[in-house]
């Protein structure tokens, strides 16, 4: 049987990523081990020294770092990722409800950011040096410059407290509704699948502000790279030749030139994943969004070891996955790269 070359390429990349991630897990665990306050003391401030030692023994906190790391890795392969002292659940269980919340927020945010950033970048490149270019440039620099936490707070104040045009910023769904049960964990989609359009609409409205604030951080990098890459590809001979053949400008810009600019754009999109997931920590804190980011922040400030290492490991893994997807997408964008992978 012949394995397709792209598959071999992917398998090799996955193997390398796994090795890197083991390294990441070690660093992440060591960091969480170094966190200062004692999880036992912070949870039960009033216990005696003997009780505390007893509890530490039960939790395995008296073991050397290497043993604790080995135990943690064992739990990673078991799939429960250790136990959170804060929630009392396994981290796996905690994350199962928080990951969809963050994913839903992140996807809406990225989609908004890309939908806003791409046209801005394309307009900037096509009307390079004109007032349109300058307006786009200032807009995306502004989007990049407004701190997410302040913007979130300010928007909540004006749009909720003052104007009442958005629902109260208390997480994924107003308490008037019961959360939809479904397979995706995305409230909007689960509710639609269950035929509850009112719930889907409520969940969507709840998403609007946080997704906007999170997505604003995506606008600027996408717009910048699009402008730069489109400027380059618009200078290519095949665009001039297309014009010489009398092909429509719209087709040449949005079809031919954009295709040529896609590789750097997709690469940037890969980098953005890490930014968005880190940015989610802030946006989720501001909007009381019960997701991964807020979970990580709480775990860090309460020295909850297993969740801290797991969150770091998880985000690093998603960055690795994003980069792999980016590399694979190259093959679909550019037939020349498809050739290279095949060799």
């Amino acid at each position: 049987m012949r394995i397709p070359p792209l598959t071999i390429y992917i398998l090799r990349r996955v193997a390398i990523s796994l090795v890197v991630l083991v390294g990441v897990s070690a660093i992440a665990f060591a960091m969480s081990y170094l966190l200062p306050s004692d999880p036992v003391t912070s949870r039960y401030p009033d216990i005696t020294n003997e009780q505390r030692e007893e509890m530490r023994r039960q939790m395995g906190l008296d073991q050397p770092l290497v043993v604790q790391y080995a135990r943690y890795m064992e739990s990673v392969f078991r799939g429960d990722f250790g136990k959170s002292f804060g929630t009392g659940n396994t981290v796996g269980l905690d994350l199962a409800i928080r990951i969809p919340a963050t994913l839903e927020l992140a996807i809406f945010g990225i989609v908004f950011g890309v939908l806003a950033g791409l046209p801005m970048g394309i307009l900037g490149a096509v009307y390079r040096g004109s007032w349109i270019d300058h307006v786009m440039r200032v807009t995306n620099l502004l989007a990049q410059s407004i701190p997410a936490f302040w913007l979130g707070v300010t928007l909540i104040f004006w749009l909720y407290f003052q104007l009442r045009v958005v629902p109260s910023p208390i997480g994924r769904l107003s308490p008037m509704f019961t959360a939809p049960v479904g397979n995706t964990g995305f409230y909007t989609i689960d509710a639609m699948l269950a035929g509850r359009w009112d719930v889907a609409w409520a969940a969507f409205r709840q998403l609007l502000l946080p997704a906007f604030v999170l997505g604003l951080g995506v606008v600027s990098p996408i717009a910048r790279i699009t402008r730069a890459a489109m400027s380059d590809s618009l200078k290519e001979d095949y665009i001039t030749f297309g014009r010489a053949l009398g092909l429509k400008s719209r087709q040449l810009i949005l079809g031919d030139a954009f295709r040529g600019a896609m590789i750097p754009i997709v690469t940037t999109l890969g980098f953005i994943v890490a930014n968005v997931l880190a940015g989610a920590a802030i946006v989720e804190t501001v909007f009381a969004w019960p997701g991964l980011g807020r979970y990580a922040v709480t775990a860090i400030t309460t020295s909850d070891m297993a969740p801290v290492s797991t969150c770091i490991l998880l985000i690093a893994s998603s960055v690795a996955v994003a980069n792999l997807l980016v590399d694979i997408s190259y093959a679909f964008i550019d037939p020349r790269i498809r050739n290279e992978y095949a060799q």
Binding site: V20, G23, V24, I27, A28, M31, S32, L34, L35, P36, A274, L277, A278, G279, A281, I282, A296, V297, I300, T301, S303, V308, C311, I312, I315, A316, V319, A320, N323
Partner: peptide
């Protein structure tokens, strides 16, 4: 450069939080 790769795949804001708490 491999180390740089690894560091850049970390969520830096969270790492910064952890490091600050570790250092006090």
């Amino acid at each position: 450069m491999r180390l740089v790769d690894i560091v850049q795949s970390f969520p830096l804001l969270l790492i910064a939080m952890v490091l600050i708490l570790v250092m006090g």
